[in-house]
Design a protein around this nucleic acid. Structure first.
Lengths: 156, 156
DNA sequence: TTTAATTCCTATCTGGTCAATGGGATTAGA
DNA sequence: TCTAATCCCATTGACCAGATAGGAATTAAA
């Protein structure tokens, strides 16, 4: 299950995507999406550190996506906030960690199953961008190129 | 991510499946799978309450699967110990719960994506039984019938 | 009948993490 | 200078996961 933090992050990112490049204040997002303002502040900071959003300070400040919505996937956001998609670290691509209790990982039956599972989730979440989720069938040419290609972005 | 508890449960169930119907002592499973014995005791109690295993007390006691290995899926075990497969309760079939902060669930973009994701994981985990995981292509006739059918067992 | 080995039951501890809040420093536009 | 925003730091409270302890109940073999 995702943490509350991560759910809020996803909602905020979708909210920003709807603003189509424009800037939004934390308090506006918080109100619209029913998220505690102070909590959302902290979450936006994480998203910024992860380079998924950019910010402007002072009056008229706010947050905006740092990339077009068709270049930001759900998988990316979830990994930034909550970490691995896989059900066990030993089945993860991006957050791999060996199981202490497992003698021979390559022979582990459980691991094989969980790798299958993680590949299926990753396929969905790395394919789905903020843009596609919003129903926009408008995929930028750049995005199309990237996602068809075997670039590291599509790797789970 | 799965809890440690759930990982241990899965390993124990695979261990029991290898015993092909035979009984195993907690201490033996614990040693073989590198699981703290007392902790495993508690986990086996959960599995028993969930009717996935049966037990015999006293000397020569132990645990065994309560059904043939090709009638026990990974999804079933995970749901019993950790709960929902879905990333959010509102995207779950078996543990559905509404999001407090969501005004109109049917219009929620996020939910739609997460339902897709959960369906993919569920497909893998509800299809994979202890038997298939162990590489046994031997599926009992009963199992084949059940899994082909639209019985509640295959429902996510 | 004793003994040994097992499951079973209840209670407890400890550390860590999540969710959220508070208070103020910094920045920038009007 | 005033206002309104992001930013930074610290902390709180609640909760739960992981694990352990000690012993009661049960059963079969010796």
């Amino acid at each position: 299950m995702l943490s509350q933090r991560c759910k809020y992050a996803l909602k905020a990112m979708v909210d920003l995507a709807r603003a189509s490049g424009g800037s939004r204040r934390v308090s506006d997002i918080a109100e619209q999406e029913n998220i505690p303002r102070k909590f959302l502040e902290a979450i936006m900071a994480d998203l910024k550190k992860g380079l998924l959003v950019a910010s402007a300070r002072g009056k008229l400040g706010g947050y905006r996506l740092s990339r077009p919505p068709d270049l930001i996937t759900f998988g990316e956001i979830i990994r930034l906030i909550d970490g691995p998609l896989a059900l066990l670290p030993c089945a993860s691509q991006n957050f791999y960690r060996r199981c202490e209790d497992c003698e021979d990982e390559t022979a582990c039956v459980l691991r094989r199953v969980l790798i299958d599972a993680r590949n299926e989730v990753a396929a969905v979440l790395d394919r789905t961008t903020l843009a596609t989720a919003l129903g926009g069938s408008s995929q930028s040419q750049f995005a199309a190129a990237v996602l068809t290609d075997k670039s590291p972005i599509s790797a789970g």
